[in-house]
Write a protein that binds this DNA or RNA. Structure first.
Length: 594
RNA sequence: GGUUGCAUAGCUCAACUGGAUAGAGCAGCUGCCUUCUAAGCAGCAGGUUCGGGGUUCGAGUCCCUGUGCAAUCACCA
């Protein structure tokens, strides 16, 4: 709020000093760099033409005006064209007081807008892996960030439960399964199915090799291998509703769902609605008809239907096969319509990897072309791949980091660290277990979310997951630390209210901490605008870091001035509240002790 | 080959959208636990921001160009 007041004042200063109209919301203020005195910095270079003076003079003029007209400006200094403004300690104290008593500070009011977020979207032929984790954490966190910004959010999962790739694992199971079940094998359902997906691929590759050995062209061999043909036949049977095939499909998919449910539960991720492609893959054909009528699509001689996007810098794109069957695009067009009917959104976010950038560019262009007004609100939250030191992950080749394994490893590591540090004394076993879960999950989620979603990232299983430094557990630790202070304050019956007039001078640490606290809303809004949990992750790390500095240098319970003591407790309490809320925006819980 | 994106400390990432001497963490080195939790704090060291041009008061950020990496360009999803 200080920042806003400053912007308005600078606008007035320009009117008064230079008779120039400058909108307060286009005035950029920066945090003053550590090596200079002050909290806010205003850069005057862009306005030299208006002010008609040298940078130092203009800076001094504005600084002088602000000091005279604002009671919260203590001093200013001008270095080159940078006007650094110092705020009075009492204003900072008041600022904190306002925030401390404002229950609504952590959330923005409802804005009446609906947004649907689709994420996770797994295939039912293999277990989740590290790449899915980034997707899930991103989608979940983005949803929470939007909700905190006042949106009405619906989280949906569109499961890819049909297609030739699903038939592959079904076929392998039929051939080699011997009636194996999750119970008989002791394997989680999704892992059991994943095993057969790999088996199929092995068989398929052997067949190709044999054919190539017999002198067949490799490209032809890929199409001629008996197993792939069988899989395609199986898909035909499935689409025709063949009883035996559909039953096998249902049985196997249900095993997978049971497995997924456990993983989602472990990750703490839930959806409002589950869509299945087996129910949606036929949608969209009507839209093709509609597009043809509107002249947006055209038919080629063989009967296939296309859209021409060359005038928008894209290609011609197929929307319906010659045999009248749907392709991916057909289905997604239909799904857009269905989603909008189910939940008339203003925005619809698709959390999907950047390998599908082109697909979504085309999809959105098509929806606009056929006149869907909601198409303006369609947004592809495109994130970068997670690479391993060995390169790209490939399910079929077994070079993936399995989600369940990784989660378990995280819990084990958390347990080991906690025990090594002797932190579980006096803790109930159940409390300790809960702590390991919180820390392991926190470390993993934080690691995957702190990087800008758009960028691809590297995951090194040996080194990536730390519990010290710029990590989830560091932030969680800070929260536990503050909780200990608040418990002690409570047991000592400290009065946490304080008179802002009587708190007196603040240390640099206290000012810096309050400054960071006042930046929370900016971070929250920015994160929603960019759909980037990384902004929240960076913010909460900076906040925790700042608090730890304060904690180290400023004693709390030694303070004799009652208002100062109350103020410091309140400062701690507000920090804890913001840490908890920020972390919850990332889908991470924070402990009371650790 | 066309298109899109990326390239910042030994490693993993920031840099408030064009602002001051480019910041954190890890790894390395040095201090701080009879005082509120040392999963912490303070400090040292580490950079031609891939190369080359340009735009301007000012460029890691914008434009051009070269190099390298990735994704995509299926009647797959």
């Amino acid at each position: 709020m200080l920042e806003q007041k400053l912007q308005e004042a600078i606008s007035k200063a320009f009117a008064s000093l230079y008779d120039y109209q400058l909108n307060s919301d286009q005035i950029g203020l920066h945090p003053t760099r550590k090596e200079f005195e002050g909290s806010y910095t205003f850069v005057v270079f862009p306005y030299l033409k208006v002010a008609k003076g040298k940078p130092e003079e203009v800076g001094a003029q504005i600084g002088e005006w602000l000091k005279e007209n604002l009671d919260f400006i203590k001093a200013f200094n001008v270095v080159k064209g940078f006007l650094n403004l110092e705020v009075t300690d009492q204003s900072w104290t008041k600022e904190l007081h306002t925030i401390a008593v404002d229950e609504s500070y952590i959330k923005l009011p409802a804005n009446g807008q609906k947004v649907m977020v689709e994420f996770s979207s797994p295939n039912t032929n293999k277990p989740l892996h590290l790449g899915h984790l980034r997707n899930n954490f991103l989608g979940d966190s983005a949803s929470r960030i939007l909700a905190a910004n006042g949106y009405d959010v619906k989280k949906v999962n569109l499961v890819n439960d049909r297609g030739v790739h699903i038939c592959k694992s079904m076929l392998a199971y039929q051939k080699m399964g011997n009636g194996e079940t999750p119970e008989s094998s002791g394997l989680k359902g999704d892992h059991l199915i994943g095993k057969y997906y790999v088996k199929f691929d092995q068989l398929y590759k052997e067949e190709i090799n044999t054919l190539v050995h017999q002198g067949l062209d490799p490209e032809k061999a890929k199409k001629e291998a008996p197993s792939i043909k069988e899989a395609q036949e199986m898909l035909q049977k499935w689409e025709n509703g063949d009883k035996e095939t559909v039953e096998l499909w249902e049985t196997m998919n249900n095993w997978v769902y049971e497995g997924f449910d456990k993983t989602y539960e472990t990750m703490g991720i839930h959806f409002d609605t589950m869509y299945k492609e087996s129910n949606t893959y036929l949608l969209g054909k009507e839209l093709v008809e509609e597009g043809l009528k509107k002249g947006v699509f055209f038919k080629k001689e063989n009967g296939s239907v296309w859209v021409d996007l060359t005038d928008e810098g894209m290609d011609e794109k197929l929307v319906l096969r010659a045999d009248g069957t749907a392709v991916y695009m057909t289905q997604d067009m239909g799904t857009c319509d269905m989603k909008h009917q189910d939940f008339p959104f203003d925005k619809s976010v698709f959390v999907v990897g950047n390998e599908q950038d082109y697909h979504f560019k085309v999809l959105f262009a098509i929806m606009k072309k056929i006149g869907r007004t909601y198409a303006e609100g369609l947004y592809h939250l495109s994130y970068g791949m997670v690479d391993l030191p060995t390169g790209k992950m490939k399910s079929r080749e077994g070079t993936v980091v399995d989600a369940d394994d990784l989660l378990q490893e995280m819990f084990d590591t958390a347990e080991r660290h906690t025990k090594e540090l002797g932190k579980i004394e006096g803790m109930e076993p159940s409390e300790a277990q809960e702590l390991y879960r919180m820390l392991g999950l926190g470390a993993l989620k934080y690691f995957l979310l702190k990087v800008d979603p758009k960028k691809r990232m590297l995951f090194n299983p040996q080194e990536s997951i730390e519990f010290q430094g710029h990590t989830g557990p560091f932030v969680q630790y800070t929260h536990a630390r503050i909780s200990a202070i608040l418990r002690r304050a409570k047991s000592l019956e400290v009065d946490t209210s304080f008179d802002t007039e009587k708190v007196g001078d603040l240390s640099k640490r206290e000012v810096d901490l309050i400054y960071k606290i006042t930046e929370y809303k900016k971070a929250l809004q920015e994160a929603a605008k960019e759909l980037s949990p990384a902004i929240i992750a960076q913010y909460v790390y900076d906040l925790a870091k700042e608090y730890n500095g304060f904690y180290q240098e400023v004693p709390i319970f030694n303070e004799e001035n009652k208002d100062k003591l109350g103020f410091r407790i309140a400062l701690s309490s507000v920090t804890a509240k913001l840490i908890k809320e920020s972390m919850s925006l990332l889908g991470i819980e924070v402990p009371e002790r650790m």
